[in-house]
């Protein structure tokens, strides 16, 4: 039986409540995230996906509907407890680096939670090892690349040994190399622990890594399912301002050129195989 970690029930949130012309940033959205899952929340800029992140960790509270974390309603009382169980990495690598050096930054959340000194030293070391930043213990933030800063942010988040890691567009300001660093770090963490990952993104490759995708459009939940189910929708996604996987784009273009294919493929391997079987292996 899968254990529920976070669930939203008919959640609606409007930023300026008194302004009736404002459409809700999040409108009647429900979903559940289960233990050990990697869920990607995707959507174009302004689709409400970042608001969802803020609703999940109590930076915002919904006007209607309920947010439950670990089966308990999220409110002022359970807030700090919840946050100590939920590591979060934000979009801008610079604006979340609190410490003067890498190790100070990783220790920040531990200090806040009153972790004793000896254990703190141990955990800082271990967390930095996991994100492969041990060589940079004493580095100052302005000497690090964006990808390195985000890995430090991940180390700071996992130092608290949280159940959930919430990535709020954590890769969107990085160069391709930095993005790969961050994503492979997350993948590796998932392989070693039963960490639940929720990543909010408009990056397709990041979404493809997830077990499940929740698609947002204009504040509404537009679709939910496995990545391959979601991306089967093809043109619909393009119309919503998202990309399709490379192989799928090529499949569609080939069809337009009159090349017969069995299906629009998600992965390059499938597409190559299809080309092989339907055109060469006769």
């Amino acid at each position: 039986m899968k254990r529920e970690i976070i669930s939203l029930q008919e959640v609606t949130f409007t930023y300026a409540e008194e302004d009736k012309s404002m459409r809700p940033a999040v409108n009647n959205v429900s979903y559940t995230v289960y233990e050990g899952e990697w869920v990607a929340i995707v959507g174009h800029n302004g689709s409400g996906k970042s608001t969802l992140a803020r609703l999940m960790n109590g930076l915002l509270f919904p006007q209607t509907g309920k947010v439950r974390v670990f089966g308990e309603p999220l409110d002022e009382q359970s807030l700090w407890d919840t946050r100590s169980q939920m590591g979060m990495v934000f979009q801008n690598p610079d604006n979340q680096f609190v410490g003067a050096t890498v190790q100070d930054d990783v220790a920040f959340a531990l200090e806040n939670n009153g972790v004793p000194f000896e254990e703190m030293v141990e955990r800082v070391k271990r967390s930095l090892l996991k994100v492969k930043m041990s060589d940079f213990m004493n580095s100052e933030p302005h000497h690090l690349s964006g990808g390195q800063k985000q890995r430090v942010a991940i180390a700071g988040a996992i130092a608290l040994q949280p159940k959930i890691l919430l990535l709020d567009e954590a890769t969107s300001m990085l160069d391709p190399q930095g993005r790969d660093e961050v994503l492979s770090t997350v993948q590796q963490l998932r392989a070693e622990t039963d960490l639940t990952v929720i990543s909010i993104t408009h990056d397709l490759e990041e979404a493809l890594l997830a077990d499940r995708v929740i698609m947002m459009n204009q504040g509404n939940k537009y679709a939910e399912g496995k990545p391959e189910e979601i991306f089967q929708r093809g043109q619909e996604l393009v119309d919503l301002g998202l990309d399709l996987p490379f192989a799928m784009n090529v499949s569609r273009l080939l069809k337009k050129q009159g090349v017969t294919l069995v299906a629009e493929h998600m992965s390059e391997e499938e597409l190559v195989n299809d080309l092989w079987t339907s055109h060469f292996n006769k």
Binding site: R83, M88, N95, V98, A109, L110, G114, M120
Partner: peptide
Amino acid sequence: FKRAEDLATAMEVRGYKGGEGRTRYRK
């Protein structure tokens, strides 16, 4: 100001609620 706002959010999310009950990493 944008940085200050982001930083405040990040600090809050990382459990910062003032000096009370904090331990120190730097000795």
